[in-house]
Amino acid sequence: MEYLLESNHLCKKFGSLMALQDINLRITRGKIIGLLGPNGSGKSTLIKIINGLMTPSSGELTVNGRTPGVETKKIVSYLPERTYLNEWMKVYELLDYFEDFYEDFRRERAEQMLSNLRISIDDKLKNMSKGTKEKVQLILVMSRDADLYVLDEPIGGVDPAARDYILKTIIGNYNENATVLLSTHLISDIENILDEVIFLQYGQIRFHRSVDEIRSQEGKSIDQLFREVYRC
């Protein structure tokens, strides 16, 4: 079976520190997957490698069969944890920018979402609140028709109403061809939308299971399981 994302014995070392150890991942299309783990578990390193922002020390990772590079960047839409846009730009300039570089960018979708949130396209990012900036970034990222969406802490530091909007946007964007990989520690807020979860600890995969299976077998929520697993 062809996986959307696959890694084999992926390792990443920083000096003597093993950030990722023997990561073997199989991710299929049409899923919303939670990448969970405490700080230092290797989540950001894995995400950087997926996006071609870092190269493995050994092993391999492929997206749609290819090593991260220009071709994978065309089909992976990434929302980092930080504001990665030039703050001096106005919203419509950002729309132009994304439209220019990403063939799969759907400008009308973005404009619709922006107007739903009453964000004017003439506004400069610099003049927006942190929450609004994050929404703009999310809208830009979700307006692409990508095969893989990698969202790093998409709902951290956002008010509950915005959180709901973001989750509904992720759900509404769903299609059987694409997969959303969500990295977060606000588990209880998002576990209802997850198909599967990947628990990372000390740079290794603890397990990769379906949410339904965990709930029916353990009788617990993912949040509860997370607290238990990471207690010791």
């Binding site: 049409g30 919303i32 709901d164 759900i171 509404g172 769903y174 997850l194 198909d195 339904d212």
Partner: peptide, 17 residues
């Protein structure tokens, strides 16, 4: 499925199931 999933704020796969 999409409409119901969005309303319930759940994964469309789950609603489909």
């Amino acid at each position: 499925v999409r409409e119901l999933a969005a309303e319930a704020s759940v994964n469309p796969n789950t609603m489909q199931k």
